[in-house]
């Protein structure tokens, strides 16, 4: 990771302590302008992931083919589509989580701040420190709330004040007030929604640059879902977020850009391969999609 100067910069800014409000506002100023002038020619945002013609294979089976899409900084990018269309597989490319699956391999080019993520020189452990992940089912460690948050920084060799970091992470995940008196209790004892926010706190404790979310609300009730969505809108000022969701309303509510995946069934073999049909601003995908399949899906005629 020779070109790590850039993401480090982000990390450093995130590290600034409780000047949170002012800092956020300061950062937010120009961005709001961008958001409002959405329909004007795009003010070019920094590209976090430049995905070029990426395909996923499990052995000989091609699960996802030819995905090309840029992911922009401080945006929420939603991946939608029917079950089995490869959204999750694609998402897990972004922090090399698929490395853990035997026989999985990737073709194409995946640049993260210009660095090829799959370059043999790149350490996947370091990748996952910078690119955090929140999973479909809340999966806190069977340890205390405190240790859940502190584990990541601890193994990363964090030398600052751990108590402060844990508190700050729980604050950002909007969980602090609910757990501040029971940090030593097990993370498993929390409710589902709280567990998921704990997982978000755990993900941001390592001060990542990007957060990947794999259907983070699918196991949660509407109130807990709303809290997570509010949180995502809050977090995107600091991080870039890529989210897989089955819930189209959710994609429409929170995301800036949406990629619609679909699954192609090969006539001879019956193999199912996912691919991206359309990738655009969320507004466009939901109001004026250019592909018939996208329109059918987002209007509920299919899937």
């Amino acid at each position: 990771m020779s070109e790590s100067g850039d993401p480090m910069d982000v990390t450093n800014r995130v590290q600034l302590p409780e000047s949170e409000g002012g800092q956020a506002e300061h950062e937010q100023g120009p961005r709001l302008a961008v958001r409002q002038s959405r329909d004007e020619p795009e003010v070019q945002r920094e590209v976090v992931f430049d995905v070029r013609d990426v395909s996923n294979y499990y052995g000989d089976f091609r699960a996802v083919r030819n995905v090309t899409l840029p992911v922009f900084r401080n945006e929420i990018t939603a991946l939608i589509g029917p079950s089995g269309c490869g959204k999750t597989t694609f998402l897990r490319n972004l922090n090399r989580m698929n490395d853990l699956i035997e026989g999985a391999r990737i073709e194409g080019e995946l640049l993260y701040h210009g660095v090829d993520l799959y370059d043999p020189q790149v350490d996947p452990v370091e990748v996952r420190r910078r690119i955090g992940m929140v999973f479909q089912k809340p999966n806190p460690f069977p340890k205390s709330i405190y240790d859940n948050v502190a584990f990541g920084p601890r193994i990363a060799g964090f030398t600052g004040n751990m108590d402060d970091l844990v508190e700050e992470s729980l604050h950002r995940a909007a969980l602090w007030d609910e757990v501040k008196d029971k940090l030593k209790e097990s993370g498993m004892a929390l409710s589902g929604g709280q567990q998921q926010r704990l997982c978000i706190a755990r993900a941001i404790a390592t001060r990542p640059d990007v957060i990947l979310m794999d259907e983070p609300c699918s196991a949660l009730d509407p109130i807990a879902t709303q809290r997570i969505e509010d949180l995502m809108l809050e977090l995107k000022h600091r991080y870039s977020i890529v989210i897989v969701t089955h819930n189209m309303q959710q994609a429409a509510r929170v995301s800036d850009r949406t990629a619609f995946f679909t699954v192609e069934v090969h006539e001879d073999s019956g193999q199912r391969t996912g691919t991206v049909v359309e990738y655009d601003k969320t507004e466009t995908i939901f109001t004026n999609p250019s592909d018939k399949r996208t329109e059918d899906y987002v209007t509920g005629r299919f899937g």
Partner: peptide
């Protein structure tokens, strides 16, 4: 597996 993934996910070796 979810526990292993969670740990790998925060950058554990």
């Amino acid at each position: 597996r979810s526990i292993r993934e969670a740990a790998f996910g925060v950058g554990a070796t």
